[in-house]
Design a protein around this nucleic acid. Structure first.
Lengths: 202, 202
DNA sequence: GTCTATAGTTTGATAGAC
DNA sequence: GTCTATCAAACTATAGAC
């Protein structure tokens, strides 16, 4: 008797369709807004009727859940692929820019990842896992620069998050707050006594 | 012929009911979530059926709009009532705490005031006015402490906003990020060269 | 001004034919 | 696995009686 194959045409085709559906969901979310995503629209985008989606996802929230996990996994991969510089100051800026740019590049994604805006949606532990790993990885980077205090890590992420929200809320598509990212990082670095440039006017 | 009265029993009663409806709307928003506010629930809370609300508000968005204006007016009043201290550092902290506490005290209100989470809702210019006045007033306070640069003002508000969002997203009801407010303000003050304590470890 | 009644829409989800 | 058909529910908003 032959061993069971790791995959066959059927399961391969099936997961390909699953990815296709998720892509369609992202498109609709960006187009109509994350909260206004409907199964009809998603289905139409992949040439299906809404009920057919239930062959791939058990509910609408299951789609949100997969999107959540996918987005954080993407960010985690991006974060882990970074070649971190020697200089702590440059390192802080690199992570900050990576997160900032990732968030600003896709508002719907940022909303799903970082805000609690979908009424009944709570990510499952499986989908939540990569976001935890991303945070751990960030703290590991900071620790590599000698920043081990929990408070410093919290403040660091809060400042970046504040700049992102201000940017997208008050100047979407612009760079009024994006330009403050580096000065803010220098300010933070000065505050915790990192080596490098001393005081700076802005 | 008698002059027209400034008000009479009818208009007085009418505006009283309007306030009652708004109070009910706030209650429902806090209870069920801002996005899940329904006219049925609001009506039930004031002993009316949903259609009756249309005698007071022309649409559901008109209710959101009134709530938006009301919230910002309240904050503006609070802001203008502050007795600002002499010390710039203390002043920065006072405004920061005022805004932080106001936001954290009512999540639904914060969501309506500062985030764009309701699908079709855009505040009318009238409702938007007090929020502009609040921002102007904040900048006036900062100017009184010699902080006149636009960038500094933007960074100041972004930091506070970031701490608020981190607090409510990751530790609602706690104080993990609230405790960072003063250190963050000292950091900011150090950065822009305000007098007072020099460098500080956190 | 408030009600009942209802229009008109949209949505997530299920049943069952093919 | 995809479809049609449909359900059940929710909502905003309007019309018209009282």
């Amino acid at each position: 008797m032959l061993g069971e194959p790791i995959y066959d045409r059927q399961t391969e085709r099936r997961s390909a369709t699953t990815v296709e559906i998720l892509d369609a969901a992202w498109f609709v979310a960006r187009d109509k807004g994350l909260a206004d995503l409907t199964l009809r629209d998603v289905g139409a985008r992949v040439g299906m009727r809404a009920p057919s989606l239930y062959s791939y996802f058990s509910s609408k929230n299951a789609i949100y859940d997969a999107m959540f996990g996918q987005a954080w996994s993407e960010y985690l991969t991006l974060l882990e692929s970074l070649a971190m510089p020697r200089s702590p100051r440059a390192g802080l800026k690199k992570i900050a820019h990576t997160f900032f740019d990732f968030a600003v590049a896709d508002l719907a994604r940022h909303q799903l990842m970082n805000q609690r805006t979908i009424p009944g949606f709570v990510p499952t532990p499986e989908a939540y896992a990569p976001s935890v790993r991303a945070l751990e990885r960030t703290h590991a980077y900071l620790a590599g620069y000698g920043i081990t205090s929990l408070e410093h890590g919290d403040l660091y992420t809060a400042i970046i998050g504040g700049l992102i929200d201000a940017q997208q809320a008050n100047d979407p598509g612009g760079d009024r707050w994006a330009r403050l990212l580096d000065p803010a990082m220098d300010m933070f670095a000065d505050c915790i006594g990192l080596p490098g440039r001393g005081r700076r006017s802005t």
